[in-house]
Design a protein around this nucleic acid. Structure first.
Length: 432
RNA sequence: UCCGGUGUAGCUCAGUUGGUUAGAGCGCUAGACUGUUAAUCUGGAUGUCGGAGGUUCGAGUCCUCUCACCGGAGCCA
């Protein structure tokens, strides 16, 4: 940005000085004194155009501004007489580029209309706040792993076979190989990184062609997946808890303005940051659910209602661990003290947000893994490279995956994940 | 995929037991007025009533099919 122009985010320290700004008109209220809400991407500021303070031509221009016109202006930074926030007393103002009939007006709009106009919707204050919180969370995740000795090991997006089920894969032609699939998870590619680098993570988009239309599902979503050597279930839960707290701390420190725009009550986030997360075995949680009125039986996975019932009874994130092996992935290690249990854990977020992390200890015994591959009807030949992790110095290891959008939705307290990513991809949404 | 719901102006919606010329607010436009902040006030322009078919003297309204979207379920991060 040219040195001649200031960014709005710096105005607090420039009260009393004359500055030049450029940006877009969020709203203009025309009257004898004219008020322009200006945004430049770094923040928002009210600009006051008075007949006596501004030159005649600028005053005239200010009276005819339309929503989202691009302008530049010069004026004195002063404090708003009522709010005390910085505002600009304009001396001169120029129209840089007009904007005609901007579709997203200051009144209410339906979600379909807003999604159709997603590119323009991103200019709104609320979307601005959400995307900036998302950015903060992404940066916090990277900083957390980078400073904790993890090496970034990017997983491929085009893959020859599925990691989990085969029912939810996007397919594409791949030359002489025939079909390739968009990755559902980078995990299988992280495990070989364990003996190579000790601690690794990947963080990128993953794809699931599930025909699910809920507030918690996207067909393209971002996942961070760490994997550690010599790590059991306890280590995995400990790592996940530290990571979530690190994220919360960064957001609460650095994104107060955005959380305020979103009217996010930060008290629940502070509890999650400061208190130890709850822990409950699957078996205990089924018993608890029964006393709370659920009709769940041991051996069944939680329904959406079950997660809600369980989380209404607590004010902090909850680890649910040691699920029945039957509904978990083939690569999960089993509990030696109770072999029908998988050494897995899910982290449920409070306030109705449900599962944000899923992970656990991986099976390290090759014979067990071979049996699991057969039991799940998978093609062994596709997994030889994965089995090599066990053949050549296979040790205990584990990790987890966290869905970025679910974390963003929880931290921002959004009703739907579609607002947590700039361009959401869902069952019925491919454009813009 | 299943269950439920909604499609009317650029946007958000109202529209009675089927009845004559389809309404409001916002936005737009012309003006008034004011340290305003979803500003306010006065005037003005704006419609393939999602699409196709049917019932009827007559359909925005009833029926059938269809498309789109919304909410929920299952599945999952």
């Amino acid at each position: 940005m040219s040195a001649a122009f200031q960014e709005i985010r710096h105005l607090k320290s420039l009260v009393g000085e004359t500055v030049s700004l450029r940006g877009w008109v969020r709203n203009a209220r025309t009257s004898k004194t004219r008020f322009i809400e200006l945004r430049d991407g770094s923040g928002f500021v009210q600009c006051v155009v008075g007949a006596n303070e501004a030159d005649a031509e600028s005053y005239e221009t200010a009276g005819k501004l339309t929503q989202e016109s691009a302008i530049s202006l010069t004026g004195l930074v002063q404090q708003h007489p009522k709010t005390g926030e910085p505002e600009i007393l304009v001396k001169s103002l120029q129209l840089l580029a007009p904007s005609v009939d901007f579709p997203i007006t200051p009144k209410d709009h339906g979600i379909e209309f807003l999604m159709d106009n997603r590119t323009l919707w991103l200019r709104s204050k609320r979307q601005w706040a959400i995307i900036r919180v998302r950015h903060e969370i992404v940066k916090a995740i990277r900083d957390f792993f980078d400073t904790d000795g993890f090496t970034l090991l990017d997983a491929p997006i085009l893959t020859p076979s599925s990691c989990e089920g085969t029912s939810s894969l996007f397919e594409t032609d791949y030359f002489h190989e025939g079909m390739a699939f968009l990755s559902q998870s980078g995990q299988l590619y992280q495990e070989p990184g364990v003996p190579a680098f000790g601690k690794v993570y990947c963080f990128g988009p993953t794809f699931r062609a599930e025909k699910s239309k809920t507030r918690r599902h996207l067909t393209e979503f971002w996942m961070v997946e760490p994997e550690m050597a010599f790590a059991g279930l306890e280590d995995v839960m400990h790592l996940g808890e530290r990571m979530v707290k690190f994220i919360l701390q960064r957001v609460l420190e650095g994104r107060q303005e955005e959380l305020k725009i979103l009217e996010r009550d930060t008290a629940p986030l502070e509890i999650a940051l400061n208190e130890t997360f709850g822990r409950m075995s699957y078996t205990d949680s089924v018993e608890k659910l029964k006393t709370l009125g659920s009709d769940i039986n041991w051996g069944e996975d939680f329904g959406n209602d079950d997660e809600t019932i369980l989380m209404n009874a607590t004010d902090r994130p909850l680890w649910v661990h040691r699920f029945p092996k039957s509904f978990k992935a083939f690569y999960m290690a089993f509990d030696p003290t109770q072999p029908d249990l998988a050494l897995g854990a899910d982290l449920l977020a409070p306030e109705g947000y449900g599962e944000v992390i899923g992970g656990g200890e991986r099976a390290s015994d090759i014979d067990y893994l071979l049996a699991q591959i057969e039991h799940h009807g998978l093609n062994r030949a596709d997994y030889e490279w994965y089995l090599d992790v066990r053949r050549f110095g296979g040790v205990q290891h584990g990790g987890f995956g966290m869905g970025l959008e679910r974390a963003v939705a929880w931290i921002c307290k959004l009703p739907h994940v579609r607002e947590t990513i700039p361009y959401p991809r869902m069952m019925g949404t491919l454009r813009p």
